[in-house]
């Protein structure tokens, strides 16, 4: 895991999940929608008091982008590694 400019990223050998920490409003939709349950609510609060998702189980990520599509706040996106 690494964090640059407010973005928390974790990758497996195919996909990287990026969370723009300070855009997140902790609605939980990404965690709910993820079919392989990659995301977990982080223990670290962002500047607005929300707990953004953390792609803890990144090994399970299949790059479906459902989290990116369902995020209302442009706060999470997936890249191919």
């Amino acid at each position: 895991m690494f964090s640059v400019g407010g973005v928390v990223s974790r990758s497996n050998n195919k996909f990287r999940v990026n969370v723009i920490v300070d855009r997140c409003k902790e609605c939980g939709l990404c965690i709910f929608i993820c079919p392989t349950k990659v995301l977990v609510r982080s223990g670290v609060m962002n500047r607005y008091g929300y707990y953004p998702p953390d792609p803890v189980f990144i090994d399970k990520c299949v790059g479906c982008k459902l989290c990116e599509y369902v995020c209302p706040d442009f706060a999470i996106f997936i890249e191919k590694v």
Partner: peptide
């Protein structure tokens, strides 16, 4: 950073919408 950022006035983010509001989903 986000792939849609070039379409956004990013300085204004985060949006005013409540947590879990569907408008942002439609917008993206």
């Amino acid at each position: 950073v986000h792939p849609l950022d070039k379409h956004l006035r990013v300085k204004r983010l985060p949006t005013i919408f409540c947590s879990g509001c569907g408008i942002g989903i439609a917008l993206s």
